[in-house]
Design a protein around this nucleic acid. Structure first.
Lengths: 231, 231
DNA sequence: ATTACTATCTCACGAGTAC
DNA sequence: TGTACTCGTGAGATAGTAA
């Protein structure tokens, strides 16, 4: 049995909205054509083909034609509709980064331990992070691209501050899991890293907790809201 | 801006299920082709065209290609999906019959008043019908066809019985509204009517309640469940 | 193994038109 | 007014193939 042709989908949908599920509804091919942005001839052909394949039934009274959708037609539309729907819902809901643990948990430690930051971490993240950041070197283009698009998504904003001598930039925090451990991926206003490095903070010492060391492969997942942003 | 071509819908859907909403996912055109029941070349062309129209982005690392769906692509898919979904939900949910009141409320009265029936009407419909049936002559093919398909839908079954002398056939009742008045359309096992006549019973005297007389136009609606039956 | 070009073919669509 | 035929055009698919 030939499947429902894809170009017939909108025609069938239009018939549904016209109420043709149970009742035969009178319809002209020219109005149908307009509804689907095709010609009268195309609409006519669609109906002929849909009938031939058993997706609709037609009834003629002289010039008047009424159309009803069969159960087969209903089932087929339901199938297509749920394929689309479930594909849209199958969104994994997270951005994924793959990389390896790089160099030191050192440089960031000093800044991240400053009171101006830790106070905010406590209230906004719910914890004061372990002193030190974990640097992960992203190894593929996909992950680097993912980091770029991260910017556009809503984050927990830790504001910058001044200690009188100098100012410290803001920190965007994205709750994340790294190899299953809760953490936060952070984007810094002032960073000395290039796009291929991401930094993470966590309540615990991630290296110890996961038994990982420099060079180990890690996967970071940042759950996404249903928000639309980016490009 | 050119709308999403319908032949690209399934390709996009496939990309969604592969998780390409947020992340760039690696994919080969031949596997994609298989998934959409098209050739490798067709899949390749789809990706090229989808990218050109801004529905996806691609990332190449040598031969490896990764694909991500843009917000524009997501929005477009959402649009299509909801068009289909809402068209399926716009089912009016009733079979409609148009016709005129015909001849007598007489013939049926005797049978419908028999205890073997009235007892069942009371328990199954919740009332004992006014003695007499209302006959409606269906005037268009659509309504006659609707009557035929009614058979396939679930009904309230009033069983036949015997009074010792003879047997009386079953009666299928379909709760209905006739010009807004609650009634039941009935199909009789043994009827002397042709397909163009439907009979109705009601707790009240329909003619009086609606101020209708022989020849008046009426509209009967029989609400449908979400059941699939018929052809 | 890939992607994606060119050529070819098929078929969806619209124009014209019969009824 | 209608529907739906034939026919020409071009979009979309596949085959073959280069890189």
């Amino acid at each position: 049995m030939p499947d429902l042709k894809i170009q017939h989908i909108l025609t069938l949908a239009e018939l549904f909205t016209k109420g043709a599920r149970y009742n035969f509804v009178p319809i002209t091919t020219s109005s149908l054509g307009k509804s689907i942005n095709k010609s009268q001839q195309a609409a006519s052909k669609h109906l002929v083909e849909l009938e031939a394949s058993g997706y609709v039934e037609r009834l003629r009274s002289g010039q008047r034609v009424s159309v009803r959708i069969t159960n087969k037609g209903y089932a087929e539309m339901l199938k297509i509709s749920s394929i689309l729907k479930s594909s849209l819902e199958s969104v994994p809901g997270h951005l994924e980064f793959k990389g390896t643990i790089s160099s030191g948990m050192g440089e960031g430690a000093y800044y991240m331990s400053m009171k101006g930051y830790t106070k905010q971490f406590k209230t906004k993240l719910g914890y004061v992070p372990f002193p030190g950041t974990l640097n992960v070197k992203l190894k593929d283009k996909e992950s680097i691209e993912a980091k770029r698009s991260l910017d556009a998504y809503p984050a927990i904003m830790v504001d910058g501050f001044s200690d009188g001598k100098r100012t410290y930039g803001w920190v965007k925090c994205y709750p994340a899991k790294i190899n299953g451990i809760n953490a936060a991926l952070i984007l810094l206003e002032r960073t000395h890293h290039d796009d291929s490095i991401v930094e993470l903070i966590s309540e615990e010492n991630i290296k110890k907790a996961t038994n990982l060391s420099t060079g180990s492969k890690v996967t970071i997942r940042v759950p996404m809201g249903t928000k639309i942003a980016q490009n």
